[in-house]
Simulated scan of single mutants.
Amino acid sequence: MSATTTARPVSAEETGRRIEEILDRLSASGEPAGAAAAEELVRCLMDFYGSGLARVLHLLSAAPGDPLPRLLGDELVASLLVLHDLHPEDRDTRIGRALDSVRRHDLEVAGFDERTGTLRLRAAASGGCGCGSGTGAQEAAEAALACFAPEVRAVELEAAPALLQIGTKTR
């Protein structure tokens, strides 16, 4: 499914009935641990989607104007859209959005391997010492990418080139 297609209509009543039937079957199976785990799973999913819907409502009512940028910029809402293949932005745009959310590390994309899902990043040239952003940058990028671009399965941070100092010879 893509953002240009619509999701199959789902009846809340029918879905609720199906969930109850499945939980009842698991309870009747005689494995209390399995039934308890299934109930916990349903609670976790309900909490996750409930939080997402609450966030959508908050972002829609937060300010006048086009709410789409606010929705797409929110990690929880974006992750729900990506999870269901409903996000209207392409992968590269979402990667850029993720890196924007950790801009203090000043990272730029060096390349993406479609086959492995590996994103190569490097510290952007900022006129500084050229010493890169360190492991904190990679961890921050990985966390942001998990929400905005989960197709990125690995992040590699390229070492910044060494800065050569060229001066005049003094006598």
Rank of each mutant, 00 (worst) to 15 (best):
S2V: 11
S2P: 11
A3W: 12
A3M: 07
T5P: 14
T5S: 15
T5Y: 14
A7Q: 11
P9L: 14
P9T: 06
R25N: 12
R25A: 12
G30M: 02
G34W: 05
E39N: 10
C44Y: 14
D47S: 13
Y49M: 09
Y49R: 02
Y49Q: 00
S51R: 13
G52Y: 06
G52Q: 04
L53H: 08
R55F: 02
L57F: 13
A63S: 06
P67M: 00
R70F: 06
L72T: 00
L72V: 05
L72P: 05
E75H: 12
E75K: 09
V77C: 02
L80H: 04
L86T: 06
H87G: 01
E89D: 13
I95W: 01
A98R: 01
A98T: 00
L99C: 03
D100R: 12
D100W: 10
V102W: 09
R104C: 15
R104Q: 15
H105L: 00
D106P: 07
D106C: 08
L107V: 02
V109F: 02
V109W: 07
G111V: 02
F112I: 00
D113H: 05
R115P: 10
R115L: 10
R115G: 04
L119H: 01
A123M: 12
C129D: 05
C129G: 04
T135L: 15
G136W: 13
A141I: 00
E142F: 08
L145N: 06
L145D: 01
A146R: 08
A146L: 13
F148P: 02
A149E: 01
P150A: 07
E151M: 10
E151A: 08
V152Q: 01
V152T: 03
R153K: 14
R153W: 13
V155Q: 00
E158C: 03
A159F: 00
A159Y: 14
L163A: 14
G167C: 14
T168Y: 15
T168A: 12
T170E: 04
